[in-house]
Design a binder for these strands. Structure first.
Lengths: 199, 199
DNA sequence: GTCTATAATGAGATAGAC
DNA sequence: GTCTATCTCATTATAGAC
């Protein structure tokens, strides 16, 4: 292998780790499996990272950052109600999960992995703070576009929305029942829309 | 160790495995850790179970069965509304989680563990079918006690309730924010009560 | 800096004495 | 049936040649 800047090598290893976790789960994400996926030697790993634990911590930070780009900002057609915008947004979120269910499994597994390590509780909390922030932004934009206001702080609505999508995601990952998911989405859109008042 | 009937030994190992998973996570639930917790020798394990995998499958079946006893049947006071009954039930569910958060972490971890093994997808589905059945029973009783009917099949309401409690549980496990949990519970009780009509 | 080779440890499973 | 002792393999991490 040619010389690669350490930062680049670290990044390549993190991306490889994410692929391994998504495809085969956290338990399978051993140092060896990760370097094999990255096409590197075992020693190169320990040149870039002090330990397997250090990589896992970086991995969680990385996926939190990646999530940013996958935000589904509502794109309301003229005259759409807040309920319709919510429904379309949650729907398109589910579509993204259906397109890559393994990745979403990986997100849950990494959250629970983090919750089992002392330093990780903080990482899991950061992960969710990030989710809440993304949801808050989308909810604020959605409210503005449909001329409504939330009847409580938008952060509180965001927590509700994330709880609903977590429950929806887990149910779909377990049951793979598209009809049940559609019914859940309708419920969620109705229930959250019920927290909005005309501006 | 004295002679122990195989069935009893299997059960002791499963209970020990559940304690290990709850206290230290699925990753730490090695055969050796389990026999140490059970106070048995390694060989005794393989006398009772063909493999570590077989025990894990049994463990998931076992926790599903145990969940039965922890159902919170609504105990409505005279004249309580369906919303109040729902709120009290979800509240007492959260209290049970707060009393033993490790156990609830273990439930999630085992679900995701199952979702990563070929035979396990079926187990995870059974686990959730069981949750849905328990919720359906509670919801039917709650509706009867408060003189309402659900405006859709009770199984569908059950799926909604489970999704909400999953989202609530995960949020609390990550953030340990009791105030946010209370707000989520109020929302969930309102939203689900909105699916009921006077009988 | 990057590699091969090799500790050192811990895993699941089994053989064989009792 | 139950145990101790052991096998075989995979793991993280490191030493040392280049």
């Amino acid at each position: 292998m040619p010389r690669i800047p350490t930062a680049e090598r670290r990044n390549a290893l993190i991306q490889a780790a994410l692929r391994v976790v998504a495809q085969r789960g956290v338990a399978a994400a051993t140092t060896r499996a990760i370097v094999a996926e990255a096409g590197m030697s075992l020693a190169s790993f320990h040149y870039a990272f002090a330990s397997h634990d250090e990589l896992m911590a970086e991995l969680i930070r990385e996926i939190v950052a990646q999530e940013e780009s996958s935000v589904v900002l509502p794109h309301p057609s003229e005259g759409a109600t807040v309920r319709e915008v919510l429904r379309a947004s949650i729907q398109s979120y589910l579509v993204s999960i259906q397109a890559d269910p393994q990745r979403e499994k990986a997100m849950f597994e990494l959250t629970h992995y983090a919750l089992r390590t002392p330093a990780g509780e903080h990482l899991a909390r950061m992960q969710y703070e990030h989710y809440y922030a993304l949801a808050s932004t989308a909810l604020a934009a959605g409210a503005e576009a449909t001329n409504v206001v939330w009847d409580r702080p938008v952060e509180e609505v965001a927590r509700i929305l994330i709880a609903l999508t977590d429950g929806l995601t887990l149910a779909w990952l377990v049951n793979r029942d598209d009809a049940a998911a559609a019914s859940l989405i309708d419920f969620a859109a109705d229930a959250v829309a019920g927290l909005a008042r005309p501006a």
